[in-house]
């Protein structure tokens, strides 16, 4: 869907982006991860031509974006900014309707689409005539997302979209983000410096440093098959938590005890290991039941048994 080839951007002598190439498949969520100054935001902004590259090519849906008029290109790409960038002199409704207005939609169609989006984002229509400064940070960010989604563009670019939010609001929006059906139909490139966020939301991750891609792969690949020491050390600090969150019950299935299930509610096997641990913590359960969707088998494990399965899984990875 999106293909980036040998893309570079030089600011004077500084090579902010140094000949990187990557691809994003349709409906995939790619995360550009890295510390400040690694070139991730510059890369993102070259895709909707907010920044013109010094060299390289970008194709969206097979079309070279540099052969299109920038304004027309941008109207077909959703864009979400860290500080929402809502127009303070526009109401919520007007803010969301910016792109439809540029595309000259008729009024009815715009109105219908705006209220549809508000509903999906769990925002009351009472806010339609409010101004952005009357809303909370989380609400503003949702409006920013609605504005990007309103014309239903196939591609969505997000620049640290949740960076300015507090932790509680952020995890709430993360959950909504994952649940939103509109987003499942999008090809998304998201920039973040937050490793947790990258692992939670990304299908694949490009870890960048000094204008280059250090490693590109799924969260599991980055975590368990780091390309080099940089990748390893980048993830080191939060490794345990990342591992818990990345591993699915499927992954450790074969080490779970085959004893028959005991009482209590169960979890699906595609939930994360982390959710399993949380279950022990919050439900104060002795054991949990895990159901395998394909085989219809249910296995049950205590906290110790679950942990033991985890370590066996890791031991096996280390031998591969």
């Amino acid at each position: 869907m999106i293909k980036v080839e040998k893309l570079s951007k030089h600011f004077g002598k500084i090579k902010a982006v140094n000949g990187i190439s990557f691809e994003v498949k349709e409906h995939e969520n790619l995360i550009l991860l890295g510390t400040s100054g690694c070139g991730k935001t510059t890369t993102l902004k070259m895709i909707n031509r907010l920044i013109e590259p010094s060299g390289g090519d970008i194709f969206i849906g097979g079309k070279n974006i540099f052969e299109q008029q920038p304004e027309v290109l941008r109207r077909g790409i959703g864009y979400v900014l860290q500080n929402n960038g809502l127009f303070p002199h526009y109401t919520v409704a007007q803010n969301i309707a910016v792109v439809p207005q540029l595309l000259k939609w008729d009024k009815k169609r715009t109105e219908k689409r705006v209220s549809e989006l508000l509903e999906k984002l769990h925002l009351s229509t009472d806010y339609l005539n409010a101004y952005p400064n009357e809303l909370s940070g989380g609400q503003q960010q949702r409006i920013g997302l609605a504005r990007a989604l309103v014309a239903d563009p196939p591609v969505l670019l997000m620049d640290e979209p949740f960076g300015a939010l507090d932790n509680v609001t952020r995890s709430k929006i993360h959950a909504e983000f994952k649940a939103l059906d509109e987003l499942k139909r999008k090809t998304i490139i998201m920039v973040t410096h937050d490793v947790q966020e990258a692992f939670e939301l990304g299908d694949r991750i490009c870890l960048m440093d000094k204008g280059k891609i250090v490693q590109e792969g799924t969260p599991t690949e980055l975590l368990f098959n780091p390309e080099n020491r940089f990748v390893k050390s980048f993830l080191q600090e939060q490794r345990l938590q990342l591992e818990f969150k990345t591993i699915r019950m499927y992954d450790i299935w074969k080490w779970l005890p085959t004893q028959p299930p005991k009482g209590g509610a169960g979890l699906a096997a595609d939930t994360s290991f982390w959710s399993g641990l949380e279950y022990f913590k919050f439900e104060a359960a002795e054991t949990i039941n895990i159901s395998h969707k394909e085989s219809h088998e249910i296995r049950s494990a205590s906290f110790e048994q679950l942990m033991s399965a985890f370590y066996q899984y890791k031991k096996q990875l280390a031998h591969e």
Binding site: R75, Y79, N84, G85
Partner: peptide, 13 residues
């Protein structure tokens, strides 16, 4: 605000 200007450009204005 630079973010507002950037948003305006990015929306395709």
């Amino acid at each position: 605000d630079a973010a507002v200007k950037e948003a305006a450009v990015a929306m395709g204005m």
